[in-house]
Simulated assay, not measured.
Amino acid sequence: MKSWLVPCILIAWLFPASVDHCLDPPPVNFSILIATSTEERSLVTYNCIKGYHLEGKKELFCNKTSLVWDSPTPVCLLGHCPNPMLVNGQLNSSKLEPVSEEEVVTFKCDVGYILKGSNWSQCQKDHTWSPPLPMCITGQCESPKRPKHGHFKARDFNSGSNITFRCDVGYQLIGAQSLQCMDGEWSDEIPICEEILESMVETEKEPERNICETVQKLMQCQKERRNTLEELKYSLEIKKLQLEKKKAVMGTEIKEGSF
């Protein structure tokens, strides 16, 4: 493998010009190019000089079978980070063009729009904004799609509003029954209506059937137990009478023997 460093401002290409090799990598002003080459492919990496940022793909490949670069040539534009933009909003910065490293901007949306994201961002050393640049969106949510075999009720789709879903007869709701519009987005996924199968209906009825059977068995058991108690009570009464009769007979015999 061979590698080299080429400042594109000088536009000094070191790739061999041959029909069986990739063409020289395309030049990019205000950048430093790092190139490597093997028998199979070539790779170039573009790095913009200080005060410029890259727009486009940073690395380009050239397969030596096709002999063409895989992506369009990037460009280096003035400013350490891309100029911040906020549609339907305003931003505040000490200087907007060109953007310098560590510069901080703040954001504010126009009337009727809600800021989605951070209200500030800083230009980083890697030429990116952090936190990411926000957006200004309307507080209204999009009209949800009516679930198949179901419907929903809603007053409106403004931020804070709720919608409630219902399914047709023979279908059951799978998912959240009620959703709320929160800063332009619904609080949950739109539910679906799923057909209720006969097996599911039987399964739902099974607990009721089991409860009824249990109650019936308990009542029957109590009835049988009540009958058993009555029989036992009657038997005890008979034995009591028999004992009293026997006791009376024995008392009479004792009296007669004493004379």
Rank of each mutant, 00 (worst) to 15 (best):
177 Q>A: 08
66 S>R: 11
176 A>T: 05
47 N>C: 08
145 K>I: 11
131 P>C: 10
97 E>S: 04
130 S>Y: 11
166 R>H: 07
151 H>Q: 14
197 L>I: 09
44 V>P: 01
83 N>F: 03
39 E>N: 15
79 G>R: 00
139 G>I: 07
221 C>P: 00
206 E>G: 04
195 E>C: 03
125 K>E: 05
4 W>R: 13
250 M>N: 12
180 Q>N: 08
153 K>N: 14
12 A>T: 15
16 P>D: 15
68 V>N: 11
144 P>Q: 15
20 D>H: 13
139 G>H: 02
100 S>I: 03
213 E>F: 03
43 L>A: 01
47 N>E: 13
61 F>M: 01
221 C>Y: 15
218 L>I: 06
116 K>H: 07
51 G>M: 03
235 S>V: 06
95 K>P: 00
156 D>G: 03
239 K>N: 11
228 T>V: 04
111 V>A: 14
231 E>S: 04
177 Q>Y: 01
128 T>W: 05
231 E>R: 13
247 K>I: 06
88 N>S: 02
137 I>S: 07
218 L>C: 02
181 C>W: 04
229 L>R: 15
173 L>P: 00
86 L>E: 06
99 V>C: 00
233 K>N: 11
147 P>G: 12
179 L>R: 12
110 D>K: 14
19 V>Y: 08
107 F>N: 03
49 I>D: 10
111 V>K: 14
123 C>E: 02
92 N>H: 11
168 D>K: 07
104 V>N: 07
183 D>S: 13
127 H>F: 05
141 C>Q: 10
75 V>P: 00
14 L>Y: 10
147 P>E: 09
70 D>Y: 03
20 D>T: 10
234 Y>H: 14
150 G>C: 08
109 C>N: 07
76 C>P: 00
177 Q>W: 00
115 L>T: 02
84 P>G: 10
4 W>I: 11
125 K>H: 08
